[in-house]
């Protein structure tokens, strides 16, 4: 490891850390340093850290080496869990809402049941009216612009 106050050169072994890991660890300290990576030989990456502002470059390089160790572990864990993670997120995004469990006092009174039945038939009636004779109905009107909706309406003259 070569170093001066303003620049430190470090070598990283590609047999120990993948290129992705090294790139990410270098990226993570770009708040404090200008970082450049070069391939030194087949097995080694040379990383140059040039400090930004008044930071301690030694501390920056320490952050880099800590992050590199962490990234290796994280990458391993992620690789091991990638499929499972994808499965669980897909499951979460596509699962139906679970019905709420019934509690003891959840039953409706006869009046409430009657009101609910009336409301249901009202809604069913409205749906029938809206969709009768119209293919590709757009009940919320979300495909229609204001201009399309109001085309042909006469503008009121301003006084």
């Amino acid at each position: 490891m070569k170093h001066s106050k303003d620049e430190i050169l470090l070598k990283s072994d590609l047999r120990k850390y993948s290129l992705d890991d090294i790139r990410y660890a270098a990226y993570s300290v770009t708040d404090e340093a200008h970082v450049e990576l070069k391939k030194s030989n087949l097995k080694t990456i040379e990383i140059s850290f040039k400090r930004k502002g008044k930071v301690s470059l030694k501390n920056t390089v320490k952050r880099f080496t800590d992050e590199l160790k962490n990234e290796k572990i994280r990458a391993d864990i992620f690789k091991n869990n990638a499929e499972l993670r994808e499965h669980l997120i897909l499951k979460a995004l596509s699962s139906e809402e679970k019905p709420q469990p019934q509690t003891d006092d959840a039953g409706l009174t006869p009046e409430q049941e009657k009101e609910l039945d009336e409301l249901i038939s009202q809604v069913e009636e409205e749906i029938k009216k809206e969709s009768s004779g119209r293919k590709n109905a757009d009940p919320l009107g979300i495909n229609q612009t204001w201009e399309e909706k109001n085309a042909g309406k006469r503008k009121k003259s301003k006084k």
């Binding site: 790139r23 270098a26 990226y27 770009t30 200008h34 970082v35 450049e36 990576l37 040039k50």
Partner: peptide, 11 residues
């Protein structure tokens, strides 16, 4: 140098 950092960001 900032530009090289940005390349690393994109990479």
């Amino acid at each position: 140098d900032d530009f090289v950092n940005e390349i690393l960001n994109q990479q």
